[in-house]
Amino acid sequence: MCRWLAYSGTPILLDNILYKPAHSLIDQSLHAKMGVETTNGDGFGVGWYVGDKDSPAVVRDIGPAWSDRNLREIAGHVVSPLFFGHIRASTGTAVQQTNCHPFRHGHWMWMHNGAIEDFHLLRRDLALAVEPSLFPYVEGSTDSEMMFYLSLTLGLEKDPPGAVARMAGLVERVGHEHGVEFPLQMTVAVTDGVSLWAFRYSSRKESRSLFYSTRVETLRSLHPDVAFLQEITGDARLIVSEPLGDLPGAWNAVPEGTYGVVRPEGDEMHTFTPVT
């Protein structure tokens, strides 16, 4: 599987999140504690929004994150209020740049940890369900990118939670038609550059780990000596595959079958159920 993080809040240097924490995403590329694999070295990607640019910048490569000098250079110079980071452990599809996350279409960005079970059996039916005008933009061969374009097809622009629910329902229906008992395993992050949605769901009801950070004001009261907490505003929030460190009270598990949204006007959490 993979590990990922999503940040929204005070514009911050990517290095402060990607490299500096004790159990940073870069550390997790070699020493993941809660993933299926300890090592996530089948590529990486970062995507970020900056200024008045409507579309995010995305940089992806097939090498391991822990030794990539270009990623270190980017992280040390880019400041962004909303960014994604992803390290990949392939579930069977090729290790190639177009299969690395995050995926981008217009102002949308998407990343995923998990898998569509027996994707090779379902792939043709799912591909035919993608809107024909969107299909030319599918560049790679992963189930993750297919899920993104299915969600775009099913209304991501107008109703992100509903679109992801319809995508999950479609994957499960097609999976069951092909005799796959538990077709879907996913933790997904998706953003339009303003709001950030995160989903934790699996057909087996045993989803991969996902955590969100405690509100900044609460952490400041718990840890008044932590300088980093004084530098960010109260709306800063991280969503991660596994905690970036062991700061007491900092991390909260996302419940099974749940999605949350982080936006400037506040955060919400809701039950997630596929729609068939």
Score class of each variant (00 low, 15 high):
103 F>M: 04
105 H>A: 01
105 H>D: 07
106 G>S: 07
106 G>N: 12
108 W>P: 02
109 M>W: 01
109 M>H: 01
110 W>A: 02
110 W>V: 02
111 M>E: 11
111 M>C: 02
113 N>Y: 10
114 G>E: 06
115 A>V: 06
115 A>F: 13
116 I>H: 03
118 D>I: 00
118 D>A: 14
120 H>K: 02
120 H>F: 08
120 H>D: 05
123 R>P: 00
123 R>H: 11
124 R>M: 05
124 R>L: 08
127 A>E: 15
131 E>Q: 14
132 P>W: 09
132 P>E: 08
137 Y>F: 15
138 V>M: 14
139 E>L: 15
139 E>C: 12
139 E>G: 02
140 G>R: 02
141 S>H: 11
144 S>Q: 05
144 S>P: 10
144 S>K: 04
144 S>A: 11
144 S>R: 05
147 M>Q: 13
148 F>H: 09
150 L>D: 06
151 S>D: 07
153 T>P: 03
153 T>L: 03
156 L>Q: 06
158 K>M: 07
158 K>N: 14
161 P>Q: 11
162 G>I: 11
163 A>H: 11
163 A>G: 11
164 V>A: 07
165 A>H: 11
166 R>K: 15
170 L>Q: 13
170 L>D: 09
173 R>T: 12
177 E>G: 01
178 H>F: 12
178 H>L: 00
179 G>E: 10
181 E>S: 10
182 F>L: 12
183 P>I: 04
183 P>S: 03
184 L>W: 04
185 Q>T: 11
185 Q>P: 00
185 Q>L: 11
185 Q>F: 13
187 T>G: 03
187 T>I: 12
188 V>N: 13
188 V>P: 09
188 V>R: 06
190 V>A: 11
190 V>K: 05
190 V>H: 02
191 T>H: 06
191 T>V: 08
191 T>A: 15
192 D>F: 03
193 G>L: 10
196 L>H: 04
200 R>D: 09
200 R>M: 02
200 R>N: 08
206 E>P: 00
206 E>G: 00
207 S>Y: 01
207 S>L: 00
208 R>K: 08
209 S>P: 01
212 Y>E: 07
213 S>D: 07
214 T>P: 02
215 R>E: 15
215 R>F: 08
218 T>V: 09
219 L>I: 04
220 R>Q: 15
220 R>Y: 07
221 S>A: 13
222 L>M: 13
222 L>T: 00
223 H>I: 04
224 P>N: 03
225 D>A: 06
226 V>R: 05
227 A>M: 14
229 L>M: 08
230 Q>R: 14
231 E>M: 14
232 I>V: 15
232 I>Y: 10
232 I>S: 09
